[in-house]
Design a binder for these strands. Structure first.
Length: 256
DNA sequence: TGTCATGTAAACAATT
DNA sequence: CAATTGTTTACATGAC
């Protein structure tokens, strides 16, 4: 019955997963073919996969601390969020970040859920924490109408990429079940990430003019996108936050 | 033009 | 009883 689910059908419902091995085998191809070939899309995807997940691991529980100064990206400043004194010095770049993050993320809800789950130490999260992760990393939703939560639940239910986990296997208490990514579909989500992420870049988040400063933890992640539209995701300091940008040249100079 | 993926809204039941 | 969670249906929109 649930096999009839739709959602991400194009990438998840495929019987044969031609790129599954590619994406699931660590260090299959990837890395740093920065010289730009047609293969870059795939290699960069692998790179994305590796780094994104690695980054998730790196940024796991410790990076989840939500006490760090929240950047008021939602357009409205939150007065109670103190000025992030050191992290982003330039109000100019702050404004850019705000612009980028108040716009809708170029990720589908499926991918947002995927990223949230993958980042969790146990690779499984209750709905509420998925909400929390999305809110934390994409503050756009904090001002968005609450319908997005419905969409998240809708996705979890509808998408066969996500599976419910018995709560006893994970979290001891709380409402509802834990949700995890079906490993069988993980490569497809990666593929979807690639497909969705790169073409849909219209929110600009120019890399900061200044390097991330020596104090920045080596946790920055950026993605050199495929051929034309280089895109990147980065972590800003201790706050895992995703930015996306488009770069018209073949190589984005992500210096941070 | 049709199909598909996705987003959104809504209704409803189950659970806490 | 209210809030949350999970499921389902329906519709709109954009891309292909």
């Amino acid at each position: 019955m649930q096999e009839e689910r739709t959602g991400l059908r194009g990438v998840c419902g495929v019987g044969t997963l031609p790129e599954a091995e590619c994406a699931s085998s660590p260090l299959a191809t990837c890395v740093d073919r920065a010289s730009g070939t047609e293969d870059e899309e795939l290699t960069n995807l692998n790179w994305l996969h590796e780094n994104l997940l690695q980054n998730f691991t790196l940024g796991g529980p410790e990076a989840q601390t939500s006490g760090s100064p929240l950047f008021d990206i939602e357009g409205d400043y939150k007065p109670n969020q103190g000025p992030s004194s050191s992290a982003s010095s330039s109000s100019q770049s702050r404004g850019r970040d705000r612009d980028s993050l108040k716009s809708k993320p170029p990720f589908s809800f499926s991918l947002l859920i995927y990223m949230a789950i993958e980042q969790s130490p146990s690779k499984s999260l209750p709905v509420k924490e998925i909400y929390g992760w999305i809110l934390e990393h994409f503050p756009y939703f904090s001002n968005a109408p609450t319908g997005w939560k419905n969409s998240v639940r809708h996705n979890l239910s509808l998408n066969k990429c996500f599976r419910k986990v018995d709560r006893s296997l994970g979290k001891a208490n709380g409402k509802g079940s834990l949700w995890c990514v079906d490993p069988e579909y993980r490569p497809n989500l990666i593929q979807a990430l690639k497909k969705q992420h790169f073409p849909v870049v219209h929110a600009f988040c120019t890399p900061p003019a200044s390097p991330p400063s020596a104090s920045s933890p080596p946790r920055h992640l950026f993605l050199q996108g495929c051929s034309f539209k280089a895109s990147w995701i980065c972590n800003l300091d201790d706050k895992q936050r995703f930015c996306w940008c488009s770069v018209s040249s073949t190589q984005s100079q992500c210096n941070h």
